[in-house]
Design a protein around this nucleic acid. Structure first.
Lengths: 243, 243
DNA sequence: CGGCAATTTGACTATCCTCAACAGGGGTGG
DNA sequence: CCACCCCTGTTGAGGATAGTCAAATTGCCG
């Protein structure tokens, strides 16, 4: 099912990097990129492994090369809320001081390009084009986050799950997402989330999420080939459900 | 020493601006500031008046000089969620393209320094120090927004109101907020929100907000001298309630 | 003093949560 | 290779929290 892309033996060269032209690095020319590369290193993460912990001083930042990671916060008594999800070419971490307000944990196998925050800060301040890219990315992330607040504050469980599936379909475009050419209006997604994690994204319980899944399936809006897979059968209906 | 005769008497001069050293303008020297001033103008807004509408192309950006404004989105069927609140020296609007995902509406009498987005974009790209300030501000806003997601996704009504009041106490520090020297552990706030607006911030209904207010009052945690005023009597209890 | 809008209060309901039992399926060891 | 087990997810019953609808009250402003 999965196409196994050939990974170069060592990823020290940004020219070979698949996100070279999509991440903030796109702001840099070859020479600058070399300098950035000198202060960074790639790192692999397994599902469930954390890169950054909530509340710690911001010590590192990173670019996502491969995989999906969650940003999450917890209340003192253990309730969790996922406050963001990052995909390849997204930026992770809190540059320019302060503490990280949320943990960063891999949902899938992931590969990231990490930098010491201090090094990155210094580099960024010398390269306005990089800071500009970072600003654009941050503004976009803020937009997305605010849209999510409407979901958390005002939408019902069914609207939340429908919205979630639509966003997944959009975000996974060209990745785990497959279009079946026989049925062009359908789309099959492999979710990088467990049911519990979906609940933590949507501000619901796992049981409520599960019930909404089965309801959507019974209504013929989606199909559930396996635990992690969803086939969207009726996009229009799903969009209507999203509120 | 210097002849002041050439300085225009009108308020076109940023030197007189109260937020001069707090807003992103702080990144600029006198000459740059003059250039920025040339493309901006101040504008007064009355409560309820909108500066930006949800979904429109981003045509203007602004700095808040005075007052409080809300950022809000609505579902198609009219439910509202306030996704942000801005105070003096905060930045408003969506630079660098795209559409505004949320409306911007004054909660109090307000004064803002507005710029055409195109002019501002061009100016910003020529002044990396300004973009850096804007980046820091945007990162901070993203942190704050994500913290709010935990509240919307995982907290109960009483926890939400308690968290809200604590954030208000912090944000209104030195403004409408007064410390009574007889009772140093108390603090009186004049909220810039109606009950409905508080409900729209917290993702609750006006009735639920009202009930939580009266409960906190009955428990002796707060007092409600008038509709818009809150006196926090027991900070520790309120913090405990905030979860 | 009256009118009006905002807020509070009350009664009832719905949605979602909690607790609990059950099912399924993927991996492991016999 | 198959049986078993454990983890994840599903289903069910009952309860609690917050929402809805309606009425009463407050306080602000002319």
């Amino acid at each position: 099912m999965q196409s196994r892309s050939q990974v170069p033996p060592i990823m020290s060269n940004c020219d070979l990097c698949v996100i070279r032209n999509h991440a903030i690095c796109a702001a840099l020319d070859a020479k600058e990129l070399e300098a950035l590369n000198a202060i960074g290193r790639t790192r692999s993460i397994v599902p469930g492994e954390s890169l950054i912990w909530e509340g710690e001083d911001s010590v590192l930042v990173a670019n996502v090369i491969e995989g999906v990671l969650k940003l999450s916060t917890n209340t003192e008594d253990g309730r969790e809320q996922i406050v963001g999800v990052v995909y390849p070419s997204d930026f992770i971490g809190r540059p320019f001081g302060g503490t990280t307000g949320h943990g960063v944990t891999a949902l899938t196998e992931a590969k990231v390009c990490v930098f010491s925050r201090r090094d990155f800060d210094a580099f960024a301040r010398e390269h306005p084009a990089l800071e500009h890219k970072l600003l654009e990315r941050t503004l976009g992330e803020l937009d997305r986050t605010r849209r999510w607040m409407l979901l958390l504050g005002r939408k019902s469980a069914s609207e939340r799950l429908a919205s979630f599936l639509l966003e997944m379909a959009e975000r996974l475009e060209g990745q785990g997402c497959a279009v079946d050419f026989d049925k062009p209006n359908q789309r099959r997604l492999t979710l990088p989330f467990s049911r519990q994690q979906i609940a933590d994204v949507l501000g619901l319980t796992i049981e409520t999420v599960s019930r909404q899944f089965t309801r959507l399936k019974q209504d013929g809006v989606i199909d559930l080939p396996s635990r992690r897979d969803v086939t969207i059968l009726d996009f229009a209906a799903l969009t209507a459900e999203a509120g």
